[in-house]
Design a protein around this nucleic acid. Sequence first.
DNA 1: CTGAAAGCGCTTACAG
DNA 2: CTGAAAGCGCTTACAG
Lengths: 342, 342
Amino acid sequence: MVKIKDVAQHAGVSSATVSRVLNGDERVASPARERVLASVRELGYRPNRLARNLRRQQTETIGVVVSEIENPHFTQAVRVIEDAAFRQGYRVILCNTDETPAKQRAYLEMLAAERVRGVILAPADAADPMISQLLALGVPIVAFDRGVDDPMADAVIADNHYGSRRAVRHLRDVGRRHIAFIGGRPEIQTGRERLAGYVAAMEELQLEPRWVEGAFRVEGAYAATRRLLADDPEVDGLVIANNLMTIGALKALRQSGRRVGDDIGLVAFDDPVWAEFVDPPITVLVQPVRRMAAQAVDLLFERIAGMRTQPRTVIFTFELRVRASCGKLPGPAYEAASVAFE
Amino acid sequence: MVKIKDVAQHAGVSSATVSRVLNGDERVASPARERVLASVRELGYRPNRLARNLRRQQTETIGVVVSEIENPHFTQAVRVIEDAAFRQGYRVILCNTDETPAKQRAYLEMLAAERVRGVILAPADAADPMISQLLALGVPIVAFDRGVDDPMADAVIADNHYGSRRAVRHLRDVGRRHIAFIGGRPEIQTGRERLAGYVAAMEELQLEPRWVEGAFRVEGAYAATRRLLADDPEVDGLVIANNLMTIGALKALRQSGRRVGDDIGLVAFDDPVWAEFVDPPITVLVQPVRRMAAQAVDLLFERIAGMRTQPRTVIFTFELRVRASCGKLPGPAYEAASVAFE
DNA sequence: CTGAAAGCGCTTACAG
DNA sequence: CTGAAAGCGCTTACAG
């Protein structure tokens, strides 16, 4: 493998000069610069980043830790983050934790050893001690989608409590009364908050809350929905806590012979690309994932650049996108009521 | 930042001993080992991978370069690759090229500088000179989904030509005659082969081929399908070259008032999770993405381990999964004919 | 079983 | 404008 010394020899200059040319140091005189560039090309020299990073005590790498890369919510986020990182000359180490605290810990451990410059983390475990350790080491962390316990981390999250309340109100407004909730995971902040918002809204409306847990997964929601329909056949409305679970719930509903939009109304969190094309199109709660991911990257790079030391939390809100899955489409009266509520 | 020397001092041993303990060298005596471990814990020592990598002239990192991470086809692959890499103690640098040759080049350049141990690449540019350069540097490359020009790379691909022929046959078998093709990108191998297979099948059947290009994207397919329907109103069958384009085509078909499965039959490449739930459920050509990705990782690690020097190409086949989007479901006579064809 | 020492390939403060 | 030299934090062949 050809190294800087070989290039130097070939060009008849010192390693220092080669390094300067390669790093765009203005001070190097044109003739030397030209010879170096020619030698680089001729020898097929490829700089060794490992050496540079060690010497500079610094990398241009960030870690992106998500709990489930196949969830379009996170895929979209990863895509935006990767894009922004590339534009800034940073690379991305992708870590998928599968909602497993142990895997998260191992990954954060690794990112520390790798001396990454910052981390965007959708935590599987908000209390992971590695979070504080990274922060103490000077590695900024932006919590995404879910907060972390350490108050020094930045965070970009959505107002889940509001989202669920909005969904329940909508179902009530179109005449549903037996509204149940297909929940995610109570260990996860989004799961907890979405459930709490649902329960709060039901109580406000003096309706009886009833819920099952679908673990944020297709199969989990399938099983949970079947259980729910068996136990509570009178259910006529459903709030589903994420897009993967919508698939599972649809399958269970179809099998049970329930007609979505007719026998049962349905509002789901997230707006994956297919929500508009399933039968019937699903009424959804949308969060601006791409803007949120962009915000997370901004916060991270502010920290990396040392432009800010105080932690910031940015909260985004949900928007209800009404489609056919709740049946009767709301009229002007509904719109008015709805605005008043918001 | 505490380093190995600090730990050594604290434990009253040499750096060499600390390093040995940390790397599980059996020869270190128990008392020394214990003291080292205690010091590591007490000082909160975090090994610096950059230094180790430089010294060992080796990383445990692979690069994964895909053209479009939001395409579920690639998301699934990335997920499988990441998982396998993690199990082997490797990290993954994620690179999204957006089908842009320049971006691919920049990324491969970066991966070379980063001294990654291997690359899995769904090429946006099969002729990229960086591919051969990496190979020459001893960095193995496994082409995924699409081949590369350099014959020294391994490859895991699907038999696209067959896939298209299968789709056309199916549409013909259910009575369609004006079968058109929504193509991807002719610059990309999958796009080329799927088109070629379509044309070949049409000619075999003495039907007139007609196609438009949707660039493998939702919007591209939407525009292309609109154009197609305007130019050729008599179209009664559609083969769509990937899952993103299916979304766009569905939208255009719906707007035009065409009833899928009735006025027009539809077979699409890929089986994303939603294909079963749209209206009507889509008949699809499935390739075993997860197995293919696992195969790609296996090939890569064989190379990394030096177990193999000859390039290998593994070709997977498509399976037709019949759902309602072609209308009339085929009976036993069809099955027989279909088996004969395969 | 353990340590002293060399060296991985860069960058950069210093001197000229 | 340019070079000699130190040093980033590890690992490991060598010697004992």
